[in-house]
Structure formats: C-alpha cells, structure tokens
C-alpha cells in the first residue's frame, strides 16, 4: 500500500498544473479585456476619481501584470482568493466557506441519485438486451442528457410542489426551523445534533434539486453500465462461473462488479459535469451554494469573485479525480503502483 500512497501523492501533484492553467486562462482573459474592472463593478454609480484610484491600489490593479499574477497565486496557496470588488473588505475565501457546503451537499445527493438511476436503468437494459425495454432505456439515456436543468427543475416543482404540494419549492431549510451548523451539510448536521424535525425538512428540500441534477446526469451512467455489463455478461469468465454451477443472480453481481471499473474511471469527469450542473440547479431552486453565488457575482460584475470561483473549482476537480483514482485502485487488484 506504500506504492499506492506514493502514486496518489504523485497524482496530487498533478493538481497543481491544472489549477495553474485554469488560473492563467482566467487571468489572461480578465486582463486583456479593455476597461477597468473596478469601474465595471461600480457600474453607473459615480465615484470620485481619487477614490477610484484608492480602490485600484487596494486591489493591486496598479501593479505590473506579473506582480498581480504572482501575488494572487501566493494568496491562493494560503486559501486566500482576494477581496470582493463590490463589498469592501469582504474576503472571497469567506464567501466560499459559507457557500460551498450547500453545493457539496447537493452534489453528493445528486451523485447518489444519478448513479442509482443510471445503474438501475443500465442493468435493466443489459439484462434485457435487444428488447423493447432496452430501446426505451437507450432513448432515456439520450433524452435525460438533453434536458435543460432549470426546465426539468421547474417541471418537477410544478408537479411535486405546486400541484401535489408534497415538497418545498426552494431553499435548504424552513426558516422557522433552527439547526445548529456544524459541517454546513444540513442533513449531516441534523443527524449529528439528532434534530429530526430539521432532518425531515432538510431532506424534503433536498429531494427535488437532487432529483433534477441526478436525472440529467444519470443518462451517462445508463449507457456506460449497459455497454459494459452486456459485454461482461457474455464474457468467458461469466461462462466459467456458470460452468461451476454458480447461481445466475450471483453471476450478475460479479459481472456488474467487473463492468463498474470503466464506470468508476468515468466518475471523475461526471463529477465535474455535476459541479457545473449544480450551478444551474442552485439558481433554479434558490439553493444558497456556489452556483447562486456565481450568478450573484456575475450580475454584480465582481470579477475577483468570479476568478476565485474558477480557481476554487479547479482545486475541487483535481481533488475529485484524486479520490476517483483511489477508489479505482481499491476495486481493481490488477493496479499495482
């Protein structure tokens, strides 16, 4: 396992170029555009020139570009993503700390939903390969992927909230319910503090956003599980299991396990798409996470915040692929580092 640890450390180092490249990309785009970000953030509000100059100085915008580039980078290492252009003195890192747990909770729930639906539909299609059900699942996998998240979310709200009145339309928790925040993941917080009222309410709020994002992302798993499982089901080792008299249900399980390896390798990329989809989901459901934050900051033209979000997400993407690699190594004994 020492080999594995070394491999993962090496993979962790690979996060650095990813972050650097995305940061550089955003930095370049922000600086080559004519116009002054401070002025842009202030919009049409009149601010005296000397105060404008002060603001520029404060955000380091008067320094040479390379100084700006490296100073920000030096900050990122200390988890400092700069200050808001709009709200004076507000640290972007603090905003992220406030908002990210909501996104994390949504992402985890959606991930579970997407893998659950994707596996179920993919297994059905593979086991009944060539049947009408198989065709239906294939159509599902394509259509699910083409659904526009805010649209699907709105339709689910219409059905489950407005017509059936079963679930709340937006937010994370009824404001009348108090919950002690420990991790920022409300479901987890409610369980930790044994606050069952809050747990029920937090789950009810989570259902529709997670379902929306989960459905859209599930199509990719449907097709992947279908393709790999139907291949595994006619493979030699499955026939060998059968020849030893192993029950079909157990064989299906073994075939499934083998077909999951390519699925796991896909998960890293899927998680990135999930983070992107979360942005739209949050906006639809007024979910107070990074996505809503991004929309607020785009509307306020708070470019340091936008830049901070991109750099932060590039870290997250790297971290996710690291976790996926670790899972991959755990389930496939052939991997030896």
């Amino acid at each position: 396992m020492a080999g594995l640890a070394r491999y993962l450390l090496l993979r962790a180092l690979l996060i650095i170029p990813t972050v650097l490249i995305l940061y550089t990309l955003v930095f370049v785009i922000m600086r080559v555009i004519p116009g002054d970000p401070v002025q842009a953030a202030l919009g049409t509000r009149y601010v005296p020139p000397e105060q404008l100059e002060l603001l520029r100085e404060r955000h380091g915008l008067n320094d040479p570009l390379y100084v700006q580039y490296f100073e920000y980078l030096a900050g990122v290492v200390r988890f400092d993503f700069g200050e808001s252009l709009v709200i004076e003195g507000r640290k972007i890192a603090d905003d992220i700390k406030d908002r990210f747990p909501a996104t994390l909770e949504l992402t985890i729930a959606s991930f579970i939903v997407s893998v659950g639906i994707g596996m179920a539909t993919g297994i059905l299609a593979a086991v009944r390969r060539g049947s009408k059900l198989d065709t239906a699942m294939r159509v599902y996998s394509i259509v699910a992927y083409t659904l526009f998240i805010p649209w699907l979310g709105s339709i689910l709200i219409m059905i489950f909230s407005l017509w059936l009145g079963l679930l709340p339309t937006h937010g994370r928790l009824d404001p009348r319910i108090s919950l002690e925040h420990k991790t920022g993941l409300y479901v987890l917080d409610a369980i930790l503090t044994q606050n069952w009222v809050a747990l029920k309410d937090a789950l009810a709020h989570l259902v529709l956003p997670a379902l929306t994002l989960g459905i859209v992302l599930s199509g990719a798993y449907t097709r992947l599980v279908r393709a790999n499982l139907s291949e595994a089901l006619v493979s030699d080792f499955v026939r060998a299991y059968r020849a030893r008299g192993v029950r079909e249900r157990r064989i299906l399980l073994h075939a499934l396990r083998n077909s999951l390896i390519p699925v796991v390798t896909m998960m890293g990329l899927q998680m990135a798409i999930l983070l992107g989809g979360a942005v739209l989901t949050e906006t639809t459901f007024s979910w107070p996470g990074m996505g809503s934050y991004l929309l607020e900051k785009v509307e306020a033209r708070d470019y340091t915040a936008v830049q901070g979000v991109v750099v932060f997400f590039s870290f997250m993407v790297g971290l996710i692929s690291l976790i996926v690699d670790a899972i991959y190594a755990l389930i496939d004994p052939r991997i030896r580092y």
């Binding site: 990813t18 490249i21 990135a272 992107g276 942005v279 991004l294 785009v298 936008v306 979000v309 993407v317």
Partner: peptide
C-alpha cells in the same frame, strides 16, 4: 495535452460563464 486535459476536466459551464461575464 496537459493544457487541454485541464480545460476538458473543468466544468464547461462554469468556465464559459466566467469568460462570458468578463467579455
């Protein structure tokens, strides 16, 4: 490859929003 993979693995919509918001 490293540059392209970095961009490819990043959530496309977030990157697009960031770029478009500046432009």
């Amino acid at each position: 490859s490293i540059i392209m993979d970095s961009i490819y693995s990043f959530p496309g919509i977030i990157l697009a929003i960031a770029i478009a918001s500046v432009l």
